[in-house]
């Protein structure tokens, strides 16, 4: 950004532009997304870092705001709130003489902080059971049904491969889907099911390789690869890598965005 633009942004934020200059600047904002983004950041910085102001958010549909809204409405949060309120009531109940107010307030504050620290200890996040999350979220995932859109000759092979997967015969499923992938690399579902069978056998690296092939392809199902990669990483107990995939899904608005947001919160 040029010094001139920086100067205009400053003048705009300080209300120093004339009506005509302001109008021209607003028109530029519509045509120049980078300028608009810079203004937005400076507005936020200005308000947050000015002691007499505050940068207020308004986007209640922001994913994290929604997640926290849910958290603030949860039974656990209500219970914490009640504990804090009870401590407050206890303070008021013991309030005897107005002269002792400040001392009592101090006692209340100290008591509330102590209660709070104890609560924090009790609420300390437990180690995450990634395998359990994998099972839970795999169950919520609609796996591709490969048989419905296939020609008869293909259908038989696909049905056979899917049968192995459904019956837990993972080695046969890997072999069958491996062959099918060579024959029909345009079927996204084949990559996904092959990776599922490999994951079940603990062949996580191979599953990731297959899903990377899908992600890097031009197939419609390419974006689904991120979701399945996140699940593979969960199964492999690689929570940080799973989180990275989930963030990509959320940021890019990819397949299973809502489930990804839900799962990311749990990690």
């Amino acid at each position: 950004m040029s010094l001139t633009d920086a100067h205009i942004i400053e003048q705009y934020l300080r209300g120093e532009l004339s009506m005509a200059e302001r109008e021209a600047f607003l028109q530029r904002l519509e045509a120049e997304p980078a300028l608009k983004e810079q203004l937005r950041l400076e507005e936020q910085m200005q308000a947050a870092l000015d002691e007499n102001d505050w940068a207020q958010a308004e986007n209640k549909d922001h994913e994290e705001v929604k997640a926290y809204t849910q958290a603030f409405g949860s039974a656990q949060t209500r219970s914490i709130k009640e504990s804090i309120e009870q401590a407050s009531q206890a303070y008021h109940a013991t309030q005897i003489a107005p002269k002792s107010k400040s001392k009592k307030l101090w006692y209340f504050s100290a008591a509330a902080v102590v209660a709070f620290i104890i609560t924090l200890t009790l609420l300390k996040p437990q180690p995450i059971d990634t395998a359990a999350l994998h099972t839970e979220y795999l169950a919520k995932t609609e796996l591709p049904d490969l048989t419905t859109r296939s020609a008869d000759d293909e259908a038989a092979e696909l049905l056979r491969a899917q049968g192995f997967l459904n019956n837990g015969e993972y080695e046969q499923a890997v072999a069958a889907f491996g062959k099918l992938l060579e024959q029909m690399p345009e079927r996204g579902g084949v990559y996904i099911n092959l990776s599922q069978a490999q994951t079940a056998l603990g062949q996580y690296n191979k599953a990731i390789q297959i899903l990377d092939l899908l992600i890097n392809s031009s197939l419609l199902d390419a974006q689904k690869g991120h979701w399945y990669k996140a699940l593979v990483y969960l199964k492999a107990d690689k929570a940080s890598k799973a989180k990275k995939e989930l963030k990509t899904i959320i940021d890019e608005g990819f397949y299973n965005k809502t489930l990804a947001s839900d799962l990311l919160d749990k990690l």
């Binding site: 947050a48 870092l49 207020q56 994290e64 958290a71």
Partner: peptide, 21 residues
Amino acid sequence: YTDEQESALALIEQKRYELFK
């Protein structure tokens, strides 16, 4: 906004403030 939304927005604003600081 509901009370929960207000609390959630305030929390995220705090996070942004901490990043800036």
